[in-house]
Computed example of a mutant assay.
Amino acid sequence: MFMHNKRLQYTVRVSETNPRLATMMLEQFGGADGELAAAMRYFTQGLGEDDAGRKDMLLDIATEELSHLEVIGSIIAMLNKGVKAQLAEGQMEEVELYRTFGTSGVSAKEALLFGGGPALIDSAGVPWTAAYIDSRSEPTADLRSNIAAESRAKIVYERLINITDDPGIKEALGFLMTREIAHQKSFEKALYAIEDNFPSGKLPGVAKYANIYVNTSQGEGDTNGPWNAGGQWDRIDDLTQTMPIDGGDGTASVGLSSAEEVAAAKLAARTASNPASNPRTGVDLGAGPGAGRTTDADLGGAEDIASAPAFAEANPPASVDTLTT
Results as ranks from 00 to 15, higher is better:
residue 135 S to K: 15
residue 135 S to T: 14
residue 136 R to T: 09
residue 137 S to N: 14
residue 139 P to C: 04
residue 141 A to L: 04
residue 142 D to T: 03
residue 142 D to I: 06
residue 143 L to W: 00
residue 144 R to S: 10
residue 146 N to F: 05
residue 149 A to P: 02
residue 149 A to I: 08
residue 149 A to Q: 09
residue 153 A to W: 01
residue 153 A to M: 02
residue 153 A to R: 01
residue 154 K to N: 07
residue 155 I to R: 15
residue 156 V to L: 09
residue 157 Y to W: 06
residue 157 Y to M: 07
residue 158 E to L: 05
residue 159 R to S: 07
residue 159 R to H: 09
residue 160 L to G: 01
residue 160 L to K: 05
residue 160 L to Y: 02
residue 160 L to A: 05
residue 161 I to S: 06
residue 162 N to A: 15
residue 162 N to M: 11
residue 162 N to L: 11
residue 163 I to H: 08
residue 167 P to H: 04
residue 168 G to T: 07
residue 169 I to R: 00
residue 170 K to N: 03
residue 171 E to S: 15
residue 171 E to T: 14
residue 177 M to C: 11
residue 178 T to E: 08
residue 181 I to S: 00
residue 181 I to C: 02
residue 182 A to V: 11
residue 186 S to E: 15
residue 188 E to W: 11
residue 190 A to M: 13
residue 190 A to V: 03
residue 193 A to I: 00
residue 194 I to H: 07
residue 194 I to S: 04
residue 195 E to I: 15
residue 195 E to C: 13
residue 197 N to R: 07
residue 197 N to M: 04
residue 197 N to K: 04
residue 197 N to F: 12
residue 199 P to Q: 05
residue 201 G to C: 01
residue 203 L to G: 11
residue 205 G to A: 12
residue 205 G to M: 09
residue 206 V to F: 10
residue 207 A to N: 10
residue 208 K to D: 14
residue 208 K to P: 02
residue 208 K to G: 00
residue 211 N to R: 14
residue 211 N to T: 05
residue 212 I to Q: 13
residue 213 Y to V: 09
residue 215 N to D: 11
residue 216 T to I: 10
residue 216 T to S: 13
residue 219 G to F: 02
residue 223 T to P: 00
residue 224 N to D: 13
residue 225 G to P: 02
residue 225 G to R: 08
residue 228 N to H: 04
residue 228 N to D: 08
residue 230 G to Y: 01
residue 230 G to T: 01
residue 230 G to C: 01
residue 231 G to D: 05
residue 231 G to V: 01
residue 231 G to T: 05
residue 231 G to W: 09
